[in-house]
Amino acid sequence: MEYSEELVRELKRKAIQVRANILEMIPPGKVGHLGGSTSIADVMAALYFHTMRINKNNPKDPGRDRLIMSKGHAVLVQYACLAELGYFDRSELGKVKTFAGILQGHPDMDKTPGIEAVTGSLGQGLSVSLGVALGLRLDKSDSRVYAILGDGELAEGQIWEAAMAAAVYKASNLTAVIDWNGVQATSTTAEIFPIANLVEKWRAFGWNVIEIDGHDMIQVLLALDAAKAYTQGPTAILAHTIKGKCFPFAEGKAKYHNAAMNEEEYTIAWQCIENMKREVEA
């Protein structure tokens, strides 16, 4: 598969805008999950602005592909995509996690157009995604389901129950993307709860496994298309990422798992956005 320079450049632009929208949601002093939202931003941009079949005019279009944030705390990145696509007014971004807003602290399908399920209690989103995939198959639909998982989340036993079940049912319409950023809420996964042989584990559980650099847009597109083409069972895309990606003060740091930036950091963050915009047009 080859991708035009223009497509790749456009998706990079979108990824920058997604990160900008994330910044807009959490101005200085407002706590938010910056780290895990920005680590998966490139994959999310590829999914929402290229790979997935969506209908922004009808969020409940039966023929749509579904994306479920199993790592629900990183929902800021999903809000950033949905706002960009016009699922709701951009003014909602400033009201995230407020009583008046429609953007809850964790994904809520009843409050927010474009959100497909209720997630936030970690470990459940892959199972829910499998259920949707099985339902779509009963309906003979060719829609696909994408589950976004955190690497820290993989400590939840239910993930592996779902992994086994998806293999048993050969759910080839299900793709899991693991945001392998190596940092969880309080420290690195290596320190908190190291899970050895992750690639081999997913393979042993019966999945088609693709390992990529989750910030390389071409690798992301190739992996998503390979998952689509694979018909023997579910695909796991293990995406090596950097927590807090693009914002140097936050990169690789557990501190920014869920934190507020100060004024100085916020200014730097916007400078990073401007720099990236210049680079992508160069």
């Binding site: 399920a117 199972s127 829910v128 499998l130 259920g131 949707v132 339902g135 239910q158 779902a162």
Partner: peptide, 15 residues
Amino acid sequence: AEQNMASVAAGLSLT
């Protein structure tokens, strides 16, 4: 695997 079963049911109902 009752936990997975419950969440898979949630997904099925979403369709």
